[in-house]
Every structure is written in structure tokens, then in C-alpha cells.
């Protein structure tokens, strides 16, 4: 049993390293993206082996539902920007003069000049050999240093006993949720602020364009989405609920619901979902603001800032998690759409 598990671990680690290596060495961006999706899958299995089902859940929702779609759509957008005439049947358009005069050893430019290199946006030449060994030396040396530290460090019990000793005041029965929303609530508040900041950053870049696409005609896509959306929403709410006593919680639920939103925007043939900008703003900020407001209230009613009175801890955590789920899901969809709604500028 143990030998089999050890063999499993070794194969898994070798696979992870191999996939990461081929992904970063790829000259074809589409291949790199598919390898990265595979990397996310293997990583989720690795988190399972490290007894971290919460992290595996998050990785599954992110890796499968969000990052893959985000990267694929970004590639498509880049292709659209660099080859604006695609879609016209005929020879590929001449390379963008700017892209090819950016000069020197630039990978893109070489591709653009080479007619056989295919799409400018989706491939990039291998890196020139100059400086190869210094890069290997820097990263390899750092890895050896890290490994030496890991091998010599002795390990104590960590913070697990401390968390276990205080579970009864936390209001929930799951250690990670207790840490995230009670013991170290600061981290989670700042995490929500970070998600909000990323969303605001994407909005500050301007209006979004419709996703470049040739919509596939036929009933398959709308039918699949109609079946999948309700299941995804139920799963998201279930994960939110499960977070108080089992792996799950606000972020996993938010990621699943965000993936459902991404699925919904992908299913629309020519436009993107366009909710009322004011409602969207309220939704995106609700999680962080609600958390902050209840945290300030805790300063007066509870023991300290961002702590909860013992008897109210469970309902408060559930309220905060619901708000956080909503905001995370909306922000992820907004980041996927990639810009402000055109209605805001009107």
C-alpha cells in the first residue's frame, strides 16, 4: 500500500515537472495553454495527496473552470488583434509592419517575417541560446538552496494543536474555515480587497469588446448550458453551505458560480451579458464592504476588530461567506469579460 502510494507520488511529481517544463518550453501558445490546464489537473491530485481537499477543490474550480477559459479567450483576443482580417477566406494578411519592425532578436518579429510560421499571435520562436546557462544556474541554484533548507529544517507540530484547541469558540466545525473567517479574518478581508482591486484594474483598461468568435450554430451549446447551469449553481451553493463543517467555503463556491457565469457568457452568440452597471458595482464590492462593516461592528460588540461574539459567530460567518461568494463570482466573470460595460460610458 505504502509502496504503491510512493510510486504514485513519484510518477505524479515527475508528470507535474514534465508538463510544466514542456509548457514553458513550448513555441505554440495553444499547446502551452492546454499543457497548463493539464498541469492544474495534476496539481489538484497532488493537493489531495497532501491531505488538502479544500485546496484541491479550489484548484479544480479554478483550473478547470476559470483559468482554462480565460487563457483560451485571451489567446483568441490576441489573435484577433494581431490578425484583424481573419475570417476572410483567403491568404493570411500581411504581417503588421509595427510587429515586424520592433526589431532585433524579437521572437514575434521573426515569426511575422517568416510566412511559414503561421499565426503571429499564437506562436513564438524559441528563445535564443545566449544566456541559457546563467538562467539555468540561477534557478537551479535557488532550487538546491530551497531543497537544502527543506532537508535540514526540523518540523514541530505547527499551528494545528492551537487551532484544534480553539475550535469551540470559532462558530464552525471546519478548521480551515475557522482560520479563514475567524482566527485570521484579516487575511480573508485583504484577499477580498485584492480580488476587488484586480476587477477594478481590468475595468480601468476600458470598455470590453465582444468575445471574438465564430459561434457554432446548432442546439448543442445552448442545450448543454441549459442543463449545466442549474447543476453548477446548486453545486456552488452546496459548497458554500458545506464550508462550515467540511471542505468547501466561500472561495470554492465563488469559483464554481463564477465558472457558471463564464459558461453563460460563452453561450451567448454575439454579445456579452450586460447587467445594470450600478447593480454590478454593488455586487462586486458587497463582499469586502460587508466583511469590513461586520468587522468594525465586532470592534464594539465583540472582543476586537474583525472578531465575532461567540454565540453569533456562525450566522455572521455564513453572512460574510455569502457576500464573499457573490462578489468573488461576479468579479471573476467581470475579469473574464475583461472590461467595463459599454453602457457605463453611454
Amino acid at each position: 500500500m505504502n509502496a504503491a502510494l510512493l510510486a504514485f507520488d513519484v510518477v505524479l511529481l515527475a508528470g507535474l515537472l514534465g508538463v510544466a517544463w514542456r509548457c514553458l518550453a513550448s513555441t505554440d501558445l495553444f499547446r502551452a495553454v492546454v499543457l497548463f490546464i493539464t498541469f492544474g489537473l495534476l496539481l489538484a491530485i497532488a493537493w489531495v495527496r497532501l491531505e488538502a481537499p479544500d485546496i484541491a477543490l479550489a484548484e479544480a474550480a479554478i483550473g478547470a473552470g476559470i483559468t482554462g477559459a480565460l487563457l483560451l479567450v485571451t489567446l483568441e483576443r490576441l489573435k484577433h488583434i494581431m490578425n484583424p482580417h481573419r475570417g476572410d477566406a483567403g491568404p493570411s494578411p500581411p504581417p503588421d509592419p509595427v510587429a515586424s519592425d520592433t526589431g532585433n532578436a524579437d521572437a514575434e518579429a521573426r515569426d511575422a517575417r517568416d510566412p511559414g510560421a503561421g499565426n503571429v499571435a499564437l506562436s513564438c520562436a524559441p528563445t535564443p541560446a545566449r544566456g541559457r546557462w546563467s538562467a539555468v544556474a540561477v534557478s537551479g541554484g535557488l532550487a538546491l538552496l530551497l531543497m537544502a533548507t527543506l532537508a535540514t529544517q526540523d518540523h514541530g507540530p505547527g499551528l494545528q494543536p492551537a487551532v484544534a484547541a480553539h475550535m469551540d469558540v470559532s462558530g464552525v466545525d471546519h478548521g480551515i474555515t475557522a482560520v479563514l473567517l475567524n482566527f485570521r479574518a484579516w487575511d480573508t478581508l485583504l484577499e477580498l480587497a485584492m480580488v476587488l482591486l484586480a476587477g477594478l484594474g481590468a475595468w480601468s483598461l476600458g470598455r470590453h469588446d465582444a468575445l471574438p468568435a465564430r459561434p457554432a450554430p446548432g442546439p448543442v451549446l445552448p442545450g448543454a448550458v441549459r442543463l449545466l447551469l442549474p447543476v453548477a449553481i446548486v453545486t456552488g451553493v452546496y459548497l458554500l453551505w458545506a464550508g462550515s463543517h467540511a471542505p468547501g467555503g466561500a472561495f470554492q463556491a465563488g469559483a464554481v458560480l463564477g465558472a457558471a457565469g463564464i459558461l453563460m457568457s460563452l453561450a451567448r452568440p454575439h454579445s456579452l451579458p450586460d447587467p445594470d452597471p450600478r447593480l454590478l458595482r454593488i455586487g462586486v464590492t458587497a463582499g469586502a464592504l460587508l466583511f469590513l462593516a461586520l468587522g468594525l461592528w465586532g470592534l464594539f460588540a465583540g472582543p476586537a476588530l474583525l472578531t465575532w461574539p461567540r454565540n453569533l459567530a456562525y450566522p455572521l460567518i455564513l453572512i460574510i461567506e455569502t457576500g464573499a461568494t457573490l462578489s468573488i463570482a461576479l468579479t471573476l466573470v467581470a475579469l473574464f469579460v475583461g472590461g467595463r460595460s459599454p453602457r457605463e460610458d453611454a
Binding site: 488538502a52 494545528q160 487551532v163 480551515i176 484577499e191 480580488v195
Partner: peptide
């Protein structure tokens, strides 16, 4: 012992960021 929940919570935060 069971895994350290603080490290796991920090990692979860890290993944979100």
C-alpha cells in the same frame, strides 16, 4: 498529526490572489 489548517488557509488565500 492532521495537517496544519493555518498553512492550508494561507495557501487558499494565495490561490485566490
Amino acid at each position: 498529526a492532521p495537517p496544519d489548517p493555518v498553512a492550508q488557509a494561507l495557501t487558499l488565500t494565495g490561490i485566490v490572489v
